[in-house]
Design a protein around this nucleic acid. Sequence first.
DNA 1: ACGATGATGAAC
DNA 2: TTCATCATCGTA
Length: 170
Amino acid sequence: MLPTQFFNRDVQKVAELLLGAYLVRRVNGKTIKYIITEVEAYDGVHDKACHACKGRTARTEVMFGPAGHWYVYLCYGMYDMLNIVTGPKDYPAAVLIRGTQEITGPGRLTKTLKITRALNGKKADKKNGLWIEKSGIKVLKKEILRTPRIGVAYAGEWAKKPWRFVWVSK
DNA sequence: ACGATGATGAAC
DNA sequence: TTCATCATCGTA
């Protein structure tokens, strides 16, 4: 299980390192590991695509908290989005986990793993049934595709930042 | 291409 | 209290 310290650093570094790691879900006695293949970085109050650009609010409070906690919010009235908080306390940033080897799309991911806002603010550990583990899989730099983030066209210049990371495996 | 569906933040 | 907006997806 990756410790809090792992997440307590630059959000883009964490995003990159999460590719090839296991997202582990334990629900009613069964534990399943999913290999993370697609993530996005959201970085600070200045990032207009990051919810924290609105400042400290009831929703964004979790991102201002310590690293290694889940930030789960409802998107488009239907889908829960799963993020892991990164960086030091009071610096709002998070990595959106968009997909795994078996599951493409952040909405499908949370639906399949039965992840809801009940996990919002909870620590990524075994007690909460959702955590991240090192897999031992080697992801080469050349296998990482970087693109602008999805669905954030409203964010002006920030929409153009190549902060989406995809592990292209063949 | 479009509607479902509800929380959020900002305006009034 | 109302309103536009939204880190999506299934159906067409």
